[in-house]
Amino acid sequence: MGTSLSKLTEKPNIWPWLLLSPLGIYMLIFFVVPLADVAIMSFTEPRPTLANYTKVLTGALYQRVFLNTFLTAAFVTACCLLVGYPLAYLMAHSKPRTAMLILLLVTMSFWTSFLVRTYSWMVLLGNNGPLIAFLQMIGIESPPQLLFTRFSSTLAMIHILAPYMIMNIYSVMKKIDPALIRSAESLGAKGFSLFRHVYLPLTAPGIANGSVLVFVICLGFYVTPVLLGSPREQMIAGLIGHQIEEFLAFGLGSAMAMVLLAVTLVILTIYHRRFGLDKLWG
C-alpha cells in the first residue's frame, strides 16, 4: 500500500497537465501575452526610457488620481462593511424564511449585470429621475446635482460591490459553531461583550476576505466611475482609458496600469501572508 502510493507520486503524471493545456494556451494567448505587451510598452512607448514611470509617480495629476482612487476604494470598502455586516448577520441568524428573502435579494442584485445596475442608477439619480422629482415635490426648489458626481459613483460602487462583502461574511458566520456562542453565554458573556470578545473575532476572516476583495476590485473599477462619476474626480482605471483612447498615450497608460497591478499584488501578498489567498473565495 505504502510503496504503491509512493510510486504513484514519484512517477510524474502528465494527464492533469494535458487536460489543463487548452486553458493554459488560452490564458497564454489572451492574458499573459497582452499583459507582457503592456509591460513592455510601459517602458518603450513612445521611446525606450523610464519617463512614463517618472511621470506617473511624480506628476501631480497622477498622484491626485491615485490618491483619489485609494481613498474611494477605502471608503467604498468601509461602507460595504457597514452595510454588509448587519445584512450578513440577518441572513445567517434569522428565521429561514427571512434569511431566504434577504439571500434572494442579495444574489439577485449579484447576478444582475453591473452595467445594468449602473444604468439603473443613472435613471434613478438623473435630472428627470424619481429622486429629483421627489425632492422637488417636497418643496426643494433647486435640488442638488446627484448624477455625475462623486456621490453617485460611490453609491453605485457600494451597491455593486456590497454582495461580495456580504457573501464572504455570511459564509463565515454560517460556519460558526453554535456551541461556541452557547459556551460563551454559559461563561457569563452577553450582549455587546459577547459580540466584541467572541462573535466579532470569529467573523474577522470574513471581514478580511470581503474587504480585500472589495478594495481590490474597486481599485480597478472602470465602467461605473466613468459613467456615473464626475469627470473632474477620476479614478485610475478611468484615467488609463482616457490616456489611451483620447491621447493614444499607450506608454503612459501602460505605466499606470503596471503601477496599479503592482499595488494590487502587494496588497494580495500581504493578505496571503496573513490569511492565505486560497481562503479569498470562501
Binding site: R182, S183, A184, S186, K190, V198, L202
Partner: peptide
C-alpha cells in the same frame, strides 16, 4: 434566568474552545 446569569460551567462534547 438567562444562561449567562446561571453561573453554571459547561463542557461541550467538541470542547467549544475559542479558536482565536
Amino acid at each position: 434566568l438567562a444562561p449567562h446569569e446561571r453561573n453554571i460551567g459547561i463542557v461541550f462534547q467538541n470542547y467549544a474552545l475559542f479558536p482565536h
